[in-house]
Simulated scan of single mutants.
Amino acid sequence: MKKMTDFYEITSKNTNSLSKTEQNIFNYVVKNMHKVKNMSIRELSTECYVSTTTVFRFVKKIGYSGYEEFVNSVREAEEATRKINIPNIVKHENYKESYLKNIIEGVQVLTDDKIDQFNAIMSKYPKVYILVEGASREVAHYFYRLLVSVGYSVDMLFEEFEIDSILKRIKSNDVLLVLSYTGSNQRVINSLERIFAIVTPTIVSFTRADNNIIQNMSDLNFYVFADEVNYEGIDVTSRIGMIAIIEILMYKRIIN
């Protein structure tokens, strides 16, 4: 019997062999675990516009003996990624294991297909803009350094005047990289809406693995996993998973 908390470890071994339809089901499951954990096979098939037979084949293909084992695994994985509040200090017996597991899960769910999509987008050496808010700003600085090092023209969008400035010059063939762990930062969403009112560049986002607004506004999204930690009202959630994904993507660019 497989450990249900190993959802991403189990599925990551098989996602590269999924058909386009099966990949769509997988993406739906990862984005909507909070819903899927309580769905019957018929309900999931309806949501994904496929037959129950297709869902059953998908479940078998990603490594489960049947739908019950699959949905129990989804339920446990979803519960493991819920927000935790640690009021004063990071004090959790299994924090080290959880920290490593989040990095591993993010890397394992990063499919070759998504890496290739990112590579194809960046192969044209487009003008790049990085839109970011909150604790992800430090990650953006590192991303900026990697991109500039390999020859990209990059602008960072931190302040309101910087958003105002690019509205006059951003083009449809540019790339907008959006770093927002929650995927629901209202300032970032408002900025995207302002940009979309003028032009629609390619949007590549890095958010947590749920069905969030920024993810749904993106052409390509990368899932980030972390135990969410709030210290006296300040978000101190680790961004190491985001950095790991960015490094893999950029190292792939470097060797191509």
Rank of each mutant, 00 (worst) to 15 (best):
Lys2Gln: 11
Asp6Val: 01
Ile10Thr: 10
Asn14Gly: 03
Asn16Ile: 04
Ser17Tyr: 14
Ser17Cys: 10
Gln23Phe: 14
Asn27Met: 00
Asn27Trp: 00
Asn32Asp: 03
Lys35Val: 15
Val36Trp: 06
Val36Arg: 03
Lys37Ser: 11
Asn38Gly: 07
Ile41Tyr: 04
Arg42Ile: 15
Thr46Gln: 13
Cys48Trp: 13
Tyr49Cys: 15
Tyr49Ser: 12
Thr53Glu: 08
Thr54Asp: 01
Val55Gln: 01
Phe58Gly: 00
Phe58Tyr: 03
Lys60Cys: 01
Lys60Pro: 00
Tyr64Asn: 02
Ser65Lys: 09
Val71Ile: 14
Arg75Asn: 00
Glu79Phe: 10
Arg82Ser: 05
Lys83Asp: 13
Lys83Thr: 12
Ile84Leu: 09
Ile84Ala: 05
Asn85Val: 14
Ile86Arg: 03
Pro87Val: 00
Lys91Tyr: 15
His92Met: 15
Ser98Cys: 05
Tyr99Glu: 04
Leu100Ile: 14
Asn102Ile: 09
Ile104Pro: 04
Gly106Asn: 03
Gln108Thr: 07
Val109Met: 07
Asp112Thr: 10
Asp112Gln: 09
Asp113Phe: 07
Lys114Ser: 02
Asp116Glu: 13
Asp116Ser: 12
Gln117Lys: 05
Ala120Ser: 14
Ala120Asp: 08
Met122Leu: 10
Lys124Pro: 03
Lys127His: 09
Lys127Val: 04
Tyr129Phe: 06
Ile130Pro: 00
Leu131Asn: 02
Arg137Leu: 06
Arg137Val: 11
Glu138Gln: 10
His141Leu: 15
Tyr144Glu: 08
Val148Met: 08
Ser149Arg: 09
Ser149Val: 09
Val154Asp: 05
Glu160Trp: 07
Ile163Ser: 09
Ser165Arg: 06
Ser165Tyr: 12
Arg169Asp: 11
Val175Trp: 12
Val175Tyr: 06
Leu176Arg: 12
Leu177Asn: 09
Thr182Phe: 12
Asn185Gly: 04
Asn185Phe: 13
Asn185Asp: 08
Gln186Asn: 12
Arg187Phe: 14
Arg187Trp: 13
Asn190Gly: 04
Ser191Trp: 14
Leu192Ile: 08
Ala197Leu: 13
Ile198Glu: 07
Val199His: 07
Thr200Ile: 13
Pro201Asp: 10
Ile203Glu: 01
Ser205Arg: 03
Thr207Arg: 01
Arg208Thr: 06
Ile213Cys: 09
Ile213Val: 12
Met217Lys: 09
Met217Tyr: 11
Asn221Pro: 07
Phe222Val: 15
Tyr223Asn: 05
Val224Leu: 15
Ala226Phe: 04
Ala226Trp: 05
Tyr231Gly: 01
Glu232Lys: 14
Ile234Cys: 02
Ile245Pro: 04
Ile254Phe: 10
